[in-house]
């Protein structure tokens, strides 16, 4: 499969090389997956349900081991015991219901042994970034779905990770809240200059957010096309309604349709 070369500005932060993943029940989730994540980019993994996007993300995070192939960190591999370079946001907010918002965001710092006094300031900074500084004493049960997801993002940001992995984080939210969070996420990404890998099945969401999109196909999951989205940042509401955006969405939709047709052949 030919891969159009895209903007090469960032060096590779982490790469999946020829990764395959078979589950114990025999399902081949990924086969021959090549993916390079470049420093500072906003990369979306786009594909239909069940194409292994989430599995690829879990392998990147080290939560799952590839059956074949390798995860390469060219510069510094994540070290056990050190501060994690990875933040992970799940599809669900995945908060500890028994702990306050503050303690939820504190969790990664606590687990990594950051001193409480220093950690407290970082927790408040992370909450400030997602606009929840007034809710630090609230419990997850007392928040709306969108606010819970903000807490989840704040928790991932607390360690100031070099790589932020997001697994369809906004899929369960209503459209109005999702647009809001899309805008806010872009602001955070630009302010922190972190690298984001964002899993989604929405063409529109991926185009709006990403600097690059990797289109995946199912059975077995692999990347078939990579597209650069070179619309300038900052992007905001007027980008969503622009002809450029519509054209880009059409291009990505076509690429996705081709990928799915190619995946259905054998």
């Amino acid at each position: 499969m030919d891969k159009p070369t895209v903007n090469q500005s960032g060096s590779a932060l982490v790469a999946l090389r020829d990764v395959s993943k078979a589950f114990p029940n025999g399902t081949l989730a990924l086969a021959g997956l090549d993916l390079e994540v470049r420093t500072g980019e906003f990369l979306s993994l786009l594909g239909p349900s069940g194409c292994g996007k989430s599995t690829a993300l879990r392998i990147l995070a080290g939560l799952s081991e590839p059956t074949q192939g390798a995860v390469e960190w060219p510069n510094a591999a994540p070290q056990a015991g050190g501060e994690s370079p990875i933040g992970f946001v799940f599809q669900e907010p995945t908060l500890m219901p028994w702990a306050s918002v503050f303690n939820n965001v504190m969790l990664p710092l606590k687990l990594q042994g950051v001193r409480t006094g220093k950690a407290g300031a970082r927790v408040m900074a992370a909450l400030d970034r997602v606009g929840l500084q007034d809710f630090s004493r609230a419990y997850p049960r007392e928040l709306s779905g969108g606010m819970r997801m903000r807490v989840s993002i704040a928790r991932a940001l607390a360690t100031e990770p070099a790589l932020l992995l997001m697994d369809e984080p906004f899929a369960a939210l209503d459209e109005i809240t999702r647009f809001k969070l899309n805008n806010d996420l872009l602001q955070v990404w630009q302010a922190l200059r972190t690298t984001v890998v964002f899993v989604t099945h929405s063409v529109f969401e991926s185009v709006y957010l990403s600097s690059r999109i990797a289109v995946m196909t199912a059975r077995p999951g692999r990347v078939v096309t990579e597209l650069a989205i070179d619309a300038p940042y900052p992007r905001a509401q007027n980008f969503r309604t622009s002809p450029d955006y519509a054209a880009l969405c059409r291009r990505v939709s076509d690429a996705l349709a081709q990928a799915m047709a190619a995946g259905a052949e054998p």
Binding site: G131, R150, N183
Partner: peptide
């Protein structure tokens, strides 16, 4: 910059 403004909170209220 890079801060969710306090007014831009989700439309849903905390319940």
């Amino acid at each position: 910059n890079g801060r969710f403004s306090a007014r831009s909170r989700d439309n849903t209220k905390p319940d």
